[in-house]
Amino acid sequence: MIPVGETTPGAPPAPPKVRRRRRRPLTFGRISFFVVFLGLPLALYLVFVIWPFVQAFYYSMTNWSGFSSSMDFVGLDNYKTLFHDDIFMKALRNNIILGIVVPLVTIVLALALATMVTVGGATSGALKGLRHSSFYRVISFFPYTIPAIVIGIIWSRIYDPSNGLLNGVLTKVGLSGFASYAWLGETAVALPASVFVIIWGFVGFYMVLFVAAIKGIPAELYDAARVDGAGRLRMAFSVTIPLIRDTIQTAYIYLGILALDAFVYMQALNPGGGPDNRTLTMSQDLFNTAFKKGQFGQASAMGVLLAVVTLVFAALVFLVNYLTGGRERKGS
């Protein structure tokens, strides 16, 4: 006889017994936990985030003036009007330029500076950054502590053609052609000058962010790369960037969202949109359409398009990161 609990030789093993999970009873404590920590945040999110988007989309299909309770449903006419509006299309083009240039240049500069102050020191001995690197971090982070409107006003005074600091310094060193140069009034220079201000205000913050990410990389990886003969540039592309890819992706998305708005900076530098609307952004055009023209329905359509452009930008960043190496990292 075969003892109980044993199987015959050669027979497949008995399948393990599946234990059924017992449902815990819904007590007052569990229900209150769900309500407070799940239901309440969800309700707040729906009321203060989702519902305003729904309202904006509804208003974008009306001719609401913003100061009256009466409105007529016009369907997609506001969107058709926008795509035939030369001023709005220029603003859209300017936003796309900002969304490409500002994140790219800011991240490249911030990453280069972060690499210098963390692993850019002597090529022999222990791996370390530049001397007095903490001082450089404090100085570079300082512009981020200044409010955006203050930064815009300061640089508008620096760019002033008659009494600006920039023209004064350039003329002092012998460049007399800049005696009355209008940096924000020239068609070819207005947008690059404005982009510089935004980059100046944010490069220090993202340098500190990348410094924190780089310090989380084990020093042994850099030592191994140095033993293999890798230089600074090779270590940056083979060690630093792949290991802080997620941080770079997050920084790019945040910078892109800021650049696609950029209302405060552009309004402080050039409230009128600059020469030939070269610095006009969609948010500025939205503000003018709503509060100066009283066309809140069309302004809502601009806001919906700005939200769509922002979502498309974020999706493209995720897609590029996935196709350029994020896929292998997720699967590892």
Score class of each variant (00 low, 15 high):
A11P: 08
P12S: 14
R30H: 11
S32K: 12
F34D: 08
F37E: 10
L38F: 08
G39Q: 10
V49A: 14
V54A: 15
Q55H: 13
F57S: 15
Y58L: 15
Y59R: 12
M61F: 05
W64C: 05
S69G: 15
D72I: 07
D77M: 12
Y79K: 11
F88T: 03
M89Y: 04
L92A: 15
G99N: 01
I107M: 03
L109F: 13
A110R: 01
A112W: 02
A114L: 03
T115H: 00
M116D: 00
V119W: 01
T123N: 08
A126F: 09
L130R: 02
F141M: 12
F142M: 15
P147L: 07
V150A: 10
W155L: 01
S156R: 01
R157E: 00
N163K: 00
L170F: 02
G174L: 05
S176T: 10
A179H: 04
G185L: 04
E186W: 03
T187M: 09
V189Q: 02
S194T: 14
V195N: 01
M207T: 15
L209A: 04
F210Y: 13
E220G: 10
D223N: 09
A225T: 13
R226N: 14
R232Q: 11
R234Y: 06
A236H: 07
I241F: 09
T250W: 04
A251D: 08
Y252D: 04
L260K: 06
Y265T: 03
A268Y: 00
D276S: 09
T279Q: 08
M282W: 00
D285S: 06
Q298P: 07
V304N: 09
V308F: 11
V320T: 12
T324H: 02
R327A: 13
